[in-house]
Design a protein around this nucleic acid. Structure first.
Length: 254
DNA sequence: ATGGCTTTATGCTAAAGA
């Protein structure tokens, strides 16, 4: 099963890029983040042979999962936040695999309630995954985590030291997820530094390769055993009017 | 980055992103 995650930074602005990418790669699962609007172009993806599930809101956030296979929606809210209206979580089942598509809050600036919200959101995610780990059900969490896991995942750890994506409170919670028995799929196959999934639009970050790795696949143990490859596809980042993120792909046997 | 770009919204500028 070929699965992919891609923060598209507006599905409306990126529709042609996404359609072309699907046509070239034909993933069995595509999890997208930052739809940035209430409407979703379901017909465009139906025409390519893809079913969809999505959760969206006006202007911000929004996640969608596409597949040529039937999609069972388990929940479109991260449990534990009754007053949380933000469209950042979509849990589905496709081909017997639970696919958890997330757009984890950015959290900047760190002296604001946005950082508090981010950390609380991560605590809720940890609680949800703790519950799922009590079951045998195989699952994948994929999406824009807004977490730089380690020094080697950014171009300059000093620059990022006090950023919400790299603060110790954030990284510690990411490690807690890993320590529940999950596998960072990308690092199974690639131990090199400077392997990025995001480059800022500003200051020539892309041509200078000043990026960060914040889009991740975390796999439960039985799916980690089935991992055949995981890589970052940098090609879409080089296009005109590109998203600032680029797709990450993971392939599983069976 | 104390913000150099991009997107949304119903706009003549602000907010958010990372």
């Amino acid at each position: 099963m070929l699965a992919a995650t891609w923060n598209v930074n507006s599905i409306k602005a990126r529709l042609d890029h996404v359609k072309n990418w699907i046509g070239t790669n034909r993933p069995e699962v595509l999890m997208m983040q930052e739809l940035k609007g209430e409407s979703f172009p379901a017909d465009d993806f139906s025409a390519l042979g893809y079913n969809n599930a999505f959760v969206a809101q006006k202007a911000y956030n929004g996640v969608a999962t596409l597949s040529p296979h039937p999609i069972e929606i388990i929940t479109d809210r991260l449990p534990g936040g009754d007053s949380d209206e933000q469209a950042r979580y979509l849990e589905t089942r496709i081909q017997g695999v639970r696919l958890i598509n997330i757009y984890l809050p950015n959290g900047n600036p760190v002296d604001s309630d946005k950082f508090t919200y981010k950390l609380a959101w991560m605590d809720r995610l940890i609680a949800r995954i703790t519950e799922l780990r009590r079951q045998a059900d195989p699952f994948i969490i994929a999406g824009d985590f807004n977490v730089i896991p380690e020094d080697r995942d950014c171009y300059d750890p000093v620059v990022w030291a006090n950023d919400a994506l790299f603060r110790m409170e954030t990284r510690r919670r990411f490690r807690t997820l890993i320590n529940l028995g999950l596998t960072d799929a990308f690092r199974v196959f690639n131990q090199e530094a400077s392997q990025y999934s995001f480059w800022d639009y500003q200051a020539g970050a892309w041509p200078r390769n000043l990026g960060i790795r914040i889009d991740h696949f975390l796999c439960s143990p039985t799916l980690a055993d089935r991992l055949e490859s995981c890589h970052i596809d940098k090609e879409p980042r080089a296009l005109e009017k590109a998203s600032d993120h680029t797709p990450v792909l993971a392939n599983f046997s069976g």
